[in-house]
């Protein structure tokens, strides 16, 4: 009982990580446009640009290591994501998909890079903007290809269903295509990044707090740190996977809009 009481006393000073840890103050003075996520997004653009300019500047038949790395990422997006899903018109969409993949990937990985350690996508507005881009692109492509009347008719009325069932099904198709798809696309990325960052915060800050406690708690804290390190590798996997899924679903939506009957 006494030890439990001690544990409770130790727990008093601990402030568990919450959403407040995501609202970071401005870096330079009072300017609200210089918070950490915004600076990280700019940094990611610079990093991506420098990396691919360096990788493609001295392009040779026998590639250097840098060129090989750049080409691997490019050919992954071009062949495995775009060509296999979109079909013969895929080349038009490769620039968009490639930009999307590298941008999300870099920003996600910033979440576990030492000193930066903040995934910008854990602020919901960044995934919203990306999902709006995808939304505009795939509807524009579909309307351009099939005409607005036929495109909407294909979405709303699926063939081979009794007439009365359209009352039930048409609202669902409309809601899925125009609301649920962009919403789930952005929220999936946001929720994964948010929860992952919070998870790491819990283990690292918790381990730090345990280290300042009584001797019994000090002995536990290495386990918390070890878990935090293990989860960092797990986070890396999640970050790569989420960037891939976002790009893949964008490609599949474009493919669905291009197909004559989806």
């Amino acid at each position: 009982m006494r030890s439990l009481h001690l544990l409770k006393m130790e727990g008093e000073g601990f402030v568990p990580p919450s959403t407040n840890d995501f609202n970071l103050p401005p870096v330079f003075g009072d300017n609200p446009y210089t918070t950490k996520p915004i600076l990280l997004v700019f940094l990611s653009v610079i990093v991506i640009s420098i990396f691919f300019i360096m990788a493609s500047r001295k392009a040779a038949v026998v590639p250097s290591k840098l060129q090989f790395a750049g080409e691997t990422i490019y050919s992954f997006v071009r062949n495995d994501v775009a060509r296999d899903n979109i079909g013969h018109e895929f080349m038009r969409f490769v620039p968009y998909l490639f930009t999307l993949f590298t941008f999300i990937l870099t920003n996600n990985i910033f979440g576990i890079v030492p000193l930066l350690q903040f995934p910008a996508m854990s602020h919901v507005s960044f995934p919203y903007v990306l999902a709006i881009f995808t939304f505009v692109v795939f509807h524009y492509v579909g309307i351009r290809k099939q005409g607005i009347g036929k495109y909407l008719k294909d979405i709303m009325f699926m063939p081979g269903v009794p007439k009365a069932a359209y009352i039930l099904l048409t609202p669902l198709e409309l809601a899925t295509f125009f609301i649920v798809r962009p919403l789930t696309l952005s929220l999936r990325l946001f929720a994964n990044m948010f929860a992952g960052h919070l998870l790491l915060l819990v283990f690292i800050l918790g381990g730090d707090h345990l280290l300042q406690g009584v001797i019994g708690l000090k002995l536990i804290s290495p386990f918390a740190f070890a878990f935090g390190i293990g989860l960092t590798f797990f986070e890396f996997m999640v970050q790569v996977l989420q960037a891939y899924i976002f790009t893949l679903l964008t490609a599949l939506y474009i493919a669905g809009a291009l197909a004559d009957e989806h």
């Binding site: 495995d80 296999d84 899903n85 039930l168 609202p171 669902l172 809601a175 899925t176 609301i179 649920v180 798809r181 789930t184 899924i245 893949l248 679903l249 599949l252």
Partner: peptide, 23 residues
Amino acid sequence: GVKDEGAAWSIFGYLLSGLIFWG
């Protein structure tokens, strides 16, 4: 395959919009 993964997410989308709309 990749197609299956896309199908699983679009099933999720249909179920979600069904529950949200008629609910």
